[in-house]
Design a protein around this nucleic acid. Structure first.
Lengths: 296, 296
DNA sequence: ATAACTAATGCGTTTTTTGCATTAATAGCT
DNA sequence: AGCTATTAATGCAAAAAACGCATTAGTTAT
């Protein structure tokens, strides 16, 4: 019995159609037929009721579908976890981060890592829809920078700093002097408000508080791109102050009242030696009073 | 990756010696070497540190040993469970029972089953060391007759009857008239007192209560054999009354004060149709007031 | 009646697995 | 130091398993 056979079984149990399933699993229908038959023969359990045209799960099949779906998920996770432990030998760490720290905090942080752990290999990922909690617990990342705090008994969080949210406008724009009037007329270039990121929810809150229905002409998930488009005069945006560090000309960052935090999160029961080293280093280096300026 | 590879890994992780492990797994050492290597290659994780003479687990290996040991146990159990569900179609039930009901209750019970479910296939097992709770929860049996009640939230129990414990002596023995004196001099033929069965613990209690250190000359786990040896005059014994139904001549059963119960136990969340039928039938047929004589 | 769909199977080819034999190192004994 | 036994890895040939195209046999829809 192979794990692959079990995965074929689960795919067929869902699809209940040999040709479609085979296609999705990148094998031929006849191979799938034989693998399922081999599984049934080995187990001595009939998993599917088949006729010339239809496939149905038996009770035993349904039971195994339910149980094995979970088993395979856990199995894959355990392997990822073991890989993390193994990778600890060779000095590898996976880091996820929100795009907004790309130009300011993150380069500084990676610099500190490089100085102290010269052989460290870093895998950087900017998840599109942030679910740092799941990524950490699923062993898909080791260190997650996030804009909001993760509340989970198995995850440690530390607040690194807080920065203002800014209105970003072209240099000679009527709003560049700081008088925030008639925002309703403006064209916005912002991240999608339907997104599940913390920043998107903060945006929604801000627009609601200011009684604005934003006229979004361009939606982008890349803050650097947004700042660039604003500098070209295509519209205005709202972004964390740290995007100022991108060094794009012809834009003005006007601080708003609202602030946004940055947290560092990691698993409590970390077994990967390298990850533990990085976290320890990060905790010792980031002796911050809560403001970004204190970052060493 | 195959389940067998994982089992090889777990065996080697325990043994830490390729030749010994290969022997135990009934394959050649070179095959084992290759399977482990294949597993490491597929996972991209180093599981063992090997030199020319020694094998040691890596940290990742230790982690996987711990997690997979449990995973494989559960895996095997789930398959057994699924098999039970599948067997429900063909009418199969596994029953475990203590040897003492062999001659009396069990034949009657099987007779009722046969009358009402003529196509039923029954797998009977008399476990040497009774752990009915584990056997039930591990899906290794469906219906467990036991001398004591199982207390488990996932197991239903029903008391069937109660019968006296008897002193079993040869027909013309000095004790056959019923005067129980000088038992300390007698040679006993009994089940091993070290055993984990309920009956063994009852025996130990009885001997302690009567301040006897039994001189056991023959130890047997088969009640019928014990009764036979007693009838031949080799010694005396203590057994439940139901052994009288074995119909062995030249023995006398002298009732003692102590009684012993019989319980029927089954899983609450039973999915096997046949097992559910049998249990329902048993519950309806065994309308007993607690004494054996009321068994229909 | 015809065409399309569907799961199972024949068959030849390719890939993988297996165990004997061997290699290269190491440990223990004399 | 030399020799023997032990041990994990690998060469190699044979056996077994897997693969996909082609086909079969039934079913459904037009």
């Amino acid at each position: 019995m192979t794990i692959q056979q079990i995965k074929y079984f689960l795919a067929l149990a869902k699809e209940l159609h040999f040709w479609n399933t085979a296609e999705k699993m990148f094998i031929s229908q006849s191979s799938l037929s034989r693998q399922i038959q081999a599984l049934e023969d080995e187990l001595q359990i009939q998993l599917f009721e088949r006729d010339k045209r239809n496939v149905k799960l038996t009770n035993a099949g349904k039971f195994l579908q339910e149980r094995w779906t979970k088993t395979i998920e856990e199995f894959d996770q355990v392997i990822r976890q073991a890989k993390k432990i193994d990778e600890g030998k060779t000095g590898t760490i996976a880091i996820t981060y929100p795009g907004s720290i790309t130009y300011d905090f993150l380069p500084d942080f990676l610099s500190v890592l490089s100085d102290n752990l010269p052989d460290l290999k870093v895998e950087l990922t900017e998840p599109k829809d942030e679910d740092h909690e799941r990524l950490l617990l699923d062993y898909q990342t080791d260190l997650a920078f996030s804009r909001d705090k993760i509340n989970n008994t198995n995850i440690d969080s530390k607040k690194l700093y807080s920065e203002p949210i800014c209105l970003v406008v072209p240099e000679h724009h009527r709003l560049s002097k700081g008088e925030l009037t008639d925002l309703g007329k403006e064209k916005f270039i912002i991240s999608g408000l339907h997104r599940t990121t913390f920043f998107a929810s903060l945006l929604r809150t801000w627009f609601a508080k200011n009684d604005l229905e934003p006229k979004t002409i361009i939606e982008s998930d890349f803050g650097g791109m947004i700042v660039n488009l604003v500098s070209k005069g295509l519209g205005i945006s709202i972004l964390p102050l740290s995007f100022q560090a991108a060094g794009i000309k012809n834009v003005v960052f006007i601080e708003l009242e609202e602030r946004i935090d940055l947290f560092m999160n990691w698993r409590k029961n970390e077994l990967n030696i390298t990850v533990k080293k990085v976290i320890e280093l990060a905790e010792n280096s980031l002796k911050t009073s809560g403001n970004r300026r204190d970052f060493m």
